[in-house]
Design a protein around this nucleic acid. Structure first.
Length: 597
RNA sequence: GGACUGGUAGUUCAGCUGGUUAGAAUGCUUCCCUGUCACGGAAGAGGUCGCGGGUUCGAAUCCCGUCCAGUCCGCCA
């Protein structure tokens, strides 16, 4: 070993010992007569000291060293005269009597500090330097801990880790596949898995009973702060279970991981139906750290749904009379909002991404009076009814959007999150875990005029909706309400960290599903015969879940929804690795071999 | 595919209602400094203002196009 200790472990207790340390020069402070060097490694920082009086030659050598030089220092641990209580090793320093340069370094393009001066692109290009920074290093060390806690939980619950192949087959439905050309089979391609979905189901048919895997998945879709083309899933499946068993098992997992990694005891997770999530929060992954539910101020013109507030219709205000939905949220304590603030909010909701036509408001003033943006049409009693419907109290501000139902709910959901952020209600130290259940099995796609599986085509319909499901025809029945599925998502602070379902394990039902999705007999045979065949050989009832491991880590570690800093070597927005400069062209010979030319 | 924001010194940014030699901080180089820990002080070097075109007597600044980056919408079973 080139060292006897690390740079993070020496304290006053080691005073007097002669030690050897290795590390990178993080900072040096040259005072003329003496020079201090902060030596950094993964474990911490230890101060080296050189003195002109004691060792002139060595001190002069130390003065010449640049940032990020790799050094090996031998010397005596000594109590400092001026202590630095901000760091664990701050009470001691090493009086160096031998110094070796293990490697020199170019001046790094950005500072290797907690708050670096480097921009994203530069940091990505020199990712190995970025990873020397404490926040990034800490993220990866914590990620390791999350992974370990997950494996411990599965192991103690009888799950088996089984690997599944990466070179598989392209299937219709779902995300775009990444494909790999096959040299041995010219003109043919493997697909990389979007998830090991079918394999884990086949493992259930094989009788493995409880399976898990922390595994890379690939989806060729556009990227976001929380989406990478290759990402990691905690993939799980269980046999002989019902939905409740799965929820219990994986609620337990999340709790244990939070406990082991963050020392937090999470309370019992909330539950909410998909329908309620959409109705009250305008989104299928509500952030329930704060209330601010959407209030329905109009009975929908269409019929049936909504609780029919009916407090905005018939006052001669055409926008509200004609709108399919008028909805409001109540921003606590915001009655004092200025004209400017309201204008800004109006601009915000009119952005193309939100797409609202305008923003109505009612100020419920502290003195009990009401002032709205549509006073012309509404008397005070009417406004008071709206306020009541919105659960507003004196001092609150009601924000109102109107328009087509789905779009307006979504916009209200966005506005709710924006107000939540503005009002500081999205507390970084708070974790609210939620199971969203009873997802629709299918979604009608207007563009392609057909049904799509909302979760995936292997999800089972709810028993009570089986007749409805069996009555559906491909490319028709778009006005029918979609049957509900045994499908569930786990949402933490408004971030979807996982989702799963109880699967179909019956061949005929699976065939009916493919049929409703518009697959022909031939396509079904060609793409999915393997799983239909398997279902003929005693497939057990089974179900499972998959977690986005990167998202789970970013949530647990720093309660944020940005996963790149939790992945050692991530891709940028355009799917490029700027360090490798990949993807890149391949030469003609390679193409020819692969049958691409 | 679309919206928005940005691209100026090694780096992070200011300058943008057109006008003398494009600034600051930090980093870097040299010098001074014996208890620093974001050490301090002095001096210095460092620029194709992303790229292409246009308007103008004159463009970092205005216009058009384009590339790159970021955030979002679509997309992501």
């Amino acid at each position: 070993m080139l060292r006897t200790h690390t740079c993070g472990e020496l304290t006053i207790k080691n005073a007097g010992q002669t030690v050897m340390l290795c590390g990178w020069l993080a900072h040096s402070r040259d005072l003329g007569g003496m020079t201090f060097i902060d030596l950094r490694d993964r474990y911490g920082i230890t101060q080296l000291v050189f003195n002109m009086d004691t060792n002139k030659e060595l001190c002069n050598q130390a003065r010449k060293l640049g940032r990020e030089f790799v050094l090996r220092a031998t010397g005596k641990v000594t109590e400092r005269s001026g202590k630095n209580l901000k760091i664990p090793t701050g009470e001691i320093e090493i009086i160096v009597d031998k110094l070796e340069i293990l490697n020199e370094s170019r001046t790094p393009p950005f500072t290797i500090e907690d708050e670096t001066d480097g921009g994203d692109e530069l940091r990505m290009k020199y990712r190995y330097l970025d990873l020397r920074r404490t926040p990034l290093r800490n993220n990866l060390l914590q990620r390791h801990k999350v992974g370990r806690a997950v494996r411990e939980y599965f192991d103690s619950n009888g799950f088996t880790d089984v690997e599944t192949p990466f070179f598989i087959k392209s299937t219709p439905e779902g995300a775009r596949d990444f494909v790999v050309p096959s040299r041995l089979n010219p003109g043919e391609f493997y697909a990389l898995p979007q998830s090991p979905q079918t394999f884990k189901q086949l493992l259930m048919v094989s009788g493995f009973d409880r399976y898990y895997q922390i595994v890379r998945c690939f989806r060729d879709e556009d990227l976001r702060a929380d989406r990478q083309p290759e990402f990691t899933q905690i993939d799980c499946e269980m046999s002989f279970v019902e939905q409740e068993d799965v929820l219990q098992m994986f609620e337990g997992m999340v709790k244990q991981v939070f406990k082991k990694v963050r020392g937090l005891e999470l309370p019992v997770f909330s539950r909410m139906t998909y329908a309620d999530a959409m109705k009250y929060y305008g989104i299928d992954k509500p952030d329930i750290r704060f209330e601010m539910r959407i209030a329905d101020l109009s009975s929908p013109l269409s019929s049936g749904r909504g609780d029919g507030g009916e407090v905005v219709r018939g006052k001669g205000f055409k926008i509200y009379d004609d709108a399919e939905l008028v909805g409001g949220i109540c921003a606590k304590g915001c009655a004092e909002y200025t004209r400017k603030q309201l204008d800004e909010l109006t601009e915000w909701v009119k952005r193309p991404q939100i797409g609202a036509g305008g923003l109505g408001y009612i100020k419920y003033n502290a003195d009990g009076t009401l002032k709205s943006s549509f006073d012309k049409f509404f008397d005070e009693a009417s406004l008071r009814k709206i306020a009541e419907k919105s659960s507003a109290k004196a001092g609150d501000l009601i924000l109102i959007l109107a328009g087509p139902e789905a779009k307006t709910r979504k916009a209200l959901g966005e506005l709710r999150l924006e107000m939540g952020s503005k009002l500081g209600l999205r507390d970084k130290n708070k974790f609210e875990c939620l199971w969203v259940v009873d997802f629709p099995l299918l979604e009608w796609n207007e563009e392609e005029q057909r049904w799509f599986a909302m979760h995936h085509p292997f999800t089972s319909p709810k028993n009570e909706d089986m007749a409805l499901f069996n009555s559906l025809s491909p490319g028709e029945d778009k006005d029918k309400v979609a049957p509900k599925a045994n499908a569930y998502d786990i949402v933490i602070n408004g971030v979807e960290v996982g989702g799963g379902s109880i699967r179909i394990h019956n061949k005929e039902l699976q065939q009916q599903m493919f049929k409703v999705l518009g697959l022909t007999k031939e396509e079904t045979e060609q793409k999915f015969s393997f799983i239909l065949n398997a279902f003929e050989f005693g497939a057990p009832p089974h179900g499972g879940i998959a977690f986005g491991f990167d998202r789970l880590c970013s949530m647990i570690i720093n309660n944020e929804d940005y996963i790149r800093d939790y992945i050692a070597f991530p891709k940028n927005n355009s799917g490029r690795d700027v360090m490798l400069d990949s993807p890149s062209a391949i030469d003609e010979k390679q193409k020819k071999e692969l049958g691409l030319k």
